[in-house]
């Protein structure tokens, strides 16, 4: 699913024009992004929470050369899925085919 397909859903289910639907979807994601950029978390009940977390500086290694480098402290975004979403995904037991499809 892409943003275009979400726009299509809004157009079909809510009845806005395609242009308005696209504008609205864009505004929703833009608002979430800007809120997170300010370090504020975004909690979407029934879906999950997007939380900005600080990471301490640490020593790393260039995997190619083995050279040690210092990785600066940074802020990262994490997503914690809501229990509702996790339950929806597990309404049915996981099939053997799905287990085999795991690539990691």
């Amino acid at each position: 699913m892409t943003k275009a397909e979400i726009v299509e859903q809004i157009y079909e289910q809510v009845g806005f024009s395609k242009k308005e639907s696209a504008e609205l979807v864009e505004k929703v994601f833009q608002t979430i992004k800007e809120t997170l950029a300010q370090g504020e978390k975004v909690k979407v009940s029934g879906f999950g929470n997007f939380v900005v977390r600080p990471k301490n500086a640490r020593k790393g290694r260039n995997p190619q050369t083995g050279q040690e480098i210092l990785l600066d402290a940074r802020r990262v975004l994490t997503f914690k899925p809501s229990l509702v979403l996790k339950n929806v995904l597990n309404d049915e037991p996981v099939s053997a085919a799905e287990l085999l499809n795991e690539d990691d």
Binding site: M1, T2, Q13, V88, L89
Partner: peptide
């Protein structure tokens, strides 16, 4: 409100189908 709910409902439905969701610039 309806739009915001529809966005997350359609994303939930896509994930339920095992579909991957890609939102450019977001994740």
């Amino acid at each position: 409100e309806i739009v915001v709910n529809t966005i997350f409902d359609s994303m939930t439905a896509a994930l339920k189908q095992g579909e991957r969701i890609e939102i450019r610039g977001f994740g």
